[in-house]
C-alpha cells in the first residue's frame, strides 16, 4: 500500500492527491483546449494555406500569407509601383494599431490612477458603490454605446457646435469620424478594465511605507517611485495588459467612429474574413496575437523589475 500522509489537511496518498488536482483542473483545461488551443491551431493552419484561382482553400504550405501580412507583395496589388515588392500598407496599419492601443492605455492609466486613489480614500461603505458606477457603462452593449457617441458628437449638438464656433471643424460638420471620437469611445470603453485591477492594488497599499519614505528624506518623486509605484506596480502591469490587448483587437469603434482612414489591424482582419480570404485574415490574426503576446511580456518585464531588485 502506498504511503499515506497529510496533504492540504486530508489524509491521503501522494498519487491520489495528484489525481485530485488533475480532476480539479480538468474543466478549465478542457475549456482552454476546445476554445483557445484548437481555434489557434486552425488559425495557424489557415495562415499557411493557399488559395486556388476561385478563392478556395488549398491545404498546401506557403509563406505567401505571412509575407503579405507584413507587407511583402509579389503580385503588386498593394504597391503603387509594380516593380516594388514591398508595400508599407499593412505595416503602417500594424504600427498605427500599436499607437492607438498605446495612447488609449496611457490615457486610461492617467485617468484610472487618481480615480483609484480617490475611491480608496472614501469611507468603506461608499467604495463598492463607486466601483459599481465605474463598471456601470460596460453593462450596456458596446454597439449601443458607440451609437450614443455618434449621437452625442453629431453636428447639431453642443459639442460639435462649440468646435465649429472655435473653428476646429468646418461649418455643419460632426465631430466624427475623427481620432478624437475614437479615443473618446476607446477610453470610455476600456476604463473599467483599467480601474478594477489597479484599484485592488491601490486599496491594499501599505501607507506606512509611504511614511517611511518621507521619514527617510525622500521628496515627492522618490516617495512616489519607491513607496507607491513599487507597491502598485503589479496592479499597474495587469491594468495595462487588460487595457492594451483588448484595445488592439477592437474594430467596432474605429469602424464606426474612425472613418476609412483609421483602419486598425483588427479592422483589416475583419475585412479579410468578410471577404472570405481566410488565409490572409488568419496570417494577420497571428500577427495580432504575436503583438499582444509581446505586449504582455513587455509589461510583465517592466513591472517585474522591482521584484528582481534591479532598482535602487
Amino acid at each position: 500500500m502506498a504511503q499515506r500522509e497529510v496533504i492540504d489537511g486530508t489524509l491521503t496518498t501522494r498519487a491520489r492527491a495528484r489525481l485530485r488536482g488533475l480532476l480539479l483542473a480538468l474543466p478549465g483545461g478542457l475549456w482552454l483546449l476546445a476554445f483557445l488551443l484548437l481555434p489557434m491551431l486552425s488559425l495557424v493552419a489557415y495562415a499557411f494555406a493557399g488559395r486556388d484561382e476561385f478563392g478556395n482553400i488549398i491545404w498546401s504550405f506557403t509563406w505567401e500569407n505571412v509575407q503579405a501580412a507584413i507587407g511583402y507583395d509579389p503580385v503588386g496589388a498593394l504597391t503603387a509601383d509594380p516593380s516594388d515588392d514591398w508595400a508599407p500598407h499593412h505595416l503602417q496599419i500594424l504600427g498605427w494599431s500599436f499607437w492607438v492601443a498605446g495612447v488609449t492605455t496611457i490615457l486610461c492609466l492617467l485617468i484610472a490612477f487618481p480615480l483609484c486613489f480617490w475611491i480608496a480614500g472614501r469611507p468603506e461603505r461608499w467604495r463598492p458603490v463607486l466601483l459599481a458606477l465605474v463598471l456601470l457603462p460596460s453593462f450596456v452593449n458596446l454597439v449601443i454605446r458607440v451609437s450614443a457617441w455618434e449621437l452625442l458628437l453629431k453636428h447639431d449638438l453642443f459639442p460639435a457646435q462649440f468646435a465649429q464656433w472655435l473653428g476646429l471643424v468646418g461649418e455643419g460638420m460632426s465631430l466624427y469620424p475623427s481620432s478624437l471620437a475614437v479615443y473618446l469611445a476607446m477610453v470610455s470603453a476600456m476604463l473599467p478594465f483599467t480601474v478594477l485591477p489597479l484599484y485592488t492594488s491601490v486599496e491594499r497599499l501599505d501607507w506606512s511605507i509611504v511614511e517611511a519614505a518621507r521619514d527617510c528624506y525622500a521628496g515627492a518623486w522618490r516617495t512616489f517611485r519607491h513607496a507607491i509605484l513599487s507597491q502598485v506596480g503589479p496592479g499597474l502591469g495587469a491594468a495595462a495588459i487588460l487595457t492594451f490587448v483588448p484595445t488592439l483587437g477592437m474594430f467596432l469603434i474605429t469602424d464606426r467612429l474612425g472613418g476609412s482612414k483609421m483602419s486598425l489591424v483588427a479592422n483589416l482582419v475583419a475585412q479579410k474574413f468578410k471577404a472570405v480570404d481566410f488565409p490572409q485574415g488568419a496570417a494577420l490574426g497571428l500577427a495580432l496575437v504575436g503583438i499582444s503576446l509581446l505586449a504582455v511580456v513587455a509589461f510583465t518585464w517592466l513591472t517585474g523589475r522591482d521584484r528582481r531588485g534591479e532598482v535602487r
Binding site: S208, E211, D215, H226, A227, S230, G309
Partner: peptide
C-alpha cells in the same frame, strides 16, 4: 527618524538598499 510598528521596509529593495535609502535621498 522613525522605526515603524510594521517595520515598513521597502519590499522591492534589498536589505543594503533599504538601509541606504535615507542617505541616497
Amino acid at each position: 527618524n522613525t522605526v515603524f510598528q510594521s517595520y515598513a521596509l521597502f519590499p522591492h529593495l534589498r536589505v543594503a538598499d533599504n538601509i541606504a535609502f535615507g542617505l541616497r535621498s
